[in-house]
């Protein structure tokens, strides 16, 4: 369980990161918290020739919040995001999901951008980015671009980032909608805060009469990347999210999902858990919205 040999460079700026990535001929890797990358390296599932450390780049750290969005710079620790009171107020779903990321030791070191860049199928932050329609900024020596999250994850541990790009920040939009918002996050794992076999996230907006105006439901851990089912979300909008509506939506999810099988759970088990978890998060999110004032 030792990583293959590599060279190490501690970068002082994003420009230097880009320069170093260019110099590595496609074989450079950025290390931030290392909570996903180092296990892959010691299991020799990845063996970069150059490891570029971004932990000392202050411009890659920080959280900015306005009425439109929560923007988290890539090297912000999960612990810092989780303990940001303004973030939890602006986007409660983000805080609920962050609380389920790994263990205290994982969150103390792991970063928001690093989790996205590695794109583990079970990662809570990847699911949050999917349901909140996050926008991810990547910088290279050729310039910068913004990638919509739905185009970001290409499969397990595979993203739209090129080997010369550095993820610099992620923007989580805040819904600009009149009405009451409710959110929920839940997951099933073998041990407390272990990798989720299946995770689920939901955010709904209800109008004054309790009719759903917008709904997102996402499932993580079940497929190689987080999943949303359009038909399921459309089934919810315009209804009062009665039990029959939620059950019908959950059935649409069950029919659409194509889960993975591994040593921990079969595809069929994951399908059943996904349906049940989706019901739970839809129910909790609805009840939270109904209980909300304004």
């Amino acid at each position: 369980m030792k990583a293959a040999e590599f060279d190490y460079a501690r970068a002082a700026s994003v420009e230097e990161v880009c320069r170093l990535l260019d110099s590595a001929n496609g074989d450079g890797k950025i290390i931030a918290g290392g909570q996903t990358l180092v296990p892959l390296m010691v299991m020799r599932l990845t063996r970069p020739s150059l490891l570029i450390d971004v932990n000392h780049i202050e411009t890659l750290k920080g959280i900015m919040i306005d009425s439109d969005a929560v923007v988290i710079r890539a090297c912000t620790r999960q612990y810092d995001a989780l303990n940001d009171v303004a973030l939890a107020k602006a986007l409660p779903l983000l805080a609920k999901g962050l609380a389920m990321v790994g263990h205290p030791q994982t969150r103390n070191r792991g970063t928001v951008g690093g989790s996205l860049a590695n794109s583990d199928p079970a990662a809570e932050i990847c699911l949050l980015a999917r349901v909140l329609d996050a926008e991810i900024t990547a910088v290279s020596s050729q310039g910068s671009r913004v990638i919509a999250d739905k185009n970001f994850a290409l499969g397990a541990m595979t993203t739209a980032l090129s080997s010369e790009e550095c993820l610099t920040e992620v923007r989580f939009p805040i819904w600009q909608i009149a009405g009451r918002i409710g959110t929920a996050f839940d997951e099933m794992s073998i041990r407390r805060s272990d990798f989720a076999l299946v995770s689920a996230a939901c955010q709904v907006a209800l109008d004054q009469s309790g009719v759903c105006r917008r709904a997102v439901v996402g499932i993580g851990g079940a497929e190689p990347s987080p999943l949303r089912v359009d038909a399921m979300e459309q089934r919810l909008v315009g209804t009062k999210l009665e039990a029959t509506d939620l059950a019908a939506a959950a059935d649409l999810l069950r029919d659409a999902i194509d889960p993975i099988t591994d040593n921990h759970a079969s595809a069929d088990y994951r399908r059943r858990v996904a349906r049940e978890l989706s019901l739970r998060v839809m129910t909790v999110a609805r009840d939270e919205a109904l209980a909300a004032r304004n």
């Binding site: 990583a3 190490y8 290390i31 290392g34 180092v38 010691v42 612990y79 994982t106 103390n108 070191r109």
Partner: peptide
């Protein structure tokens, strides 16, 4: 802060 020293070089 508590961290895992096997996940840091």
């Amino acid at each position: 802060q508590a961290i895992r020293s096997c996940l840091m070089f």
